[in-house]
Structures are given as structure tokens and as C-alpha cells.
Design a protein around this nucleic acid. Sequence first.
DNA 1: ATGTCGTAACGTTTACGA
Length: 260
Amino acid sequence: MKIASFNINGIKARLPALLDWLDEAQPDIALLQEIKSVDEGFPHEPFEERGYNVATHGQKGFNGVAILSKHPLEDVSRGLPGDDSDVQARWIEATVVGDIAAMRVCGLYLPNGNPAPGPKYDYKLSWMRRLEARARDLLDSEEPFLLAGDYNVIPQDEDAKRPEAWREDALALPDSRAAFRRLVNLGLTEAFRARVQGPGHYTFWDYQAGAWNRDDGIRIDHFLLSPQAADMMTDCGIDKEIRAREKPSDHVPIWVTFDL
DNA sequence: ATGTCGTAACGTTTACGA
């Protein structure tokens, strides 16, 4: 089973590019971030035509996450637990039943947090605390699970072409990195780094200043796997080449395959 | 030289968030 994560930066603007990638990459499940659409505005037909079930958690203008799945989605839950006053659409989870096992699949769009310091950075760090609490609860359940999406965290300097440019940025500040490490240190496996070591692997290139042409990227889209899910992983990769296409997102997909 | 997108709205232009 192939599960992918893709920050599409707007479903309306990205639909043709998203469909082209889906047809080629053929993921069984795609976790989407930044749909920038309310649920009623998200197109279902082009995905259902291709055999995907669709679950969305959107809001007007910004944020918004979705799951496309060729398997039925069971027990869909929207919104990250831990703060009833948080109205931002950044979290969706569902259970998918494979041939061998079932897996809880969680899609996330972690707050950017800039400018830091400030209220937006405080929101990012508190959101990461809630994410850690959700991960602890899922670990207690002993059900295989994954947490995948746009983390807006550059885990280490090797995950940026120009780490010095991000030193004061919410994506790389020590508190952001510490919160990400705390999550991993619960016993989760960062899928890409379990397969590939070294610098030069990115999932985001800014639209500005010719970042793509200079390969001035950062690695901020991640899959964290529970121990049971990590045992089932067979491969992991980044679909870098689609960043060069017409009307691309500023992110590219990352995917993991499982014996599931 | 501060560079580009996508979305919304008191909209043919500006503000915001990234």
C-alpha cells in the first residue's frame, strides 16, 4: 500500500496538476494539506471517478486538510484534540483496513509560526504539544499509525540548502526542533531518514527568488511512523521532479509504501 | 531591486498568509 502526503497550496488552483500526479504516482491514499477550501467547495467527482473516497476538513480561504483513499475510510475524525477553541482546520484522521492489518492514518498541517517570537509562534508550539499528546494516546492504543503532512519544521541543518537563512525562522528555531524531536523520541520512526541519509533532500522550494532553479529548498514534509507501522514500511521517497511542472505547488509529495 | 503565489472581497486592487 502506497500512502502519500502533498501540500497542494489550493485545490482550485492545483486540480489539474494534482490529478496528473495522482494518475502517475497511483497512491492508495493521499493526505492533502492547504486545500484552502470549505468542505462544500472541494471537488469530489474527479477523485471518485478514479476510485478514491474523499474526506475533507476545510475552512474558508486558508488551511484545510483532506484524505483521498481507495480503501474505505472508517471512523473519520476532524480537528486536533486538546483545545476546543481552536477553529483552524489542520488535522484529519481515519482508519484504513489493509489485507494484513488496519492502520490509523493522520494528516496534519502544522502551523507555520512566523513571525517568531509572537502569538503565531506560541500557537505553533502549543499545537505541537497537542500533537505529542495525541501521539501518546495513539501509542497507548498499540494500533499501527502514521502522522504525515506539512510539519513546517526543518529538523536539522542538513535539511536546508542554506541553513543560515532559517536560523531565526519559526521553521528552524531551537524550540521548534526540540518539539519535533520530542515527538520522534516517543518512539516514532521518521520514514525518510530511515531510508535516506545526508543533505540535499527537500520537499519545499519557495516561489520567490528563483529558489527552485537554485535548488534552494527545505525538507519540512514528514512521515512519522508508529513502531508497528515502521515494521511494515518497505520504501519511502520524494517526488521532486513535479516541482518543475506548470503551475506547481511550492511543495512536492512524499510517500511511503507498506506491506499492509 | 526585498523578487511569487493563492485566496477573499467594500474587487479591475489591496490585504493576508505562506
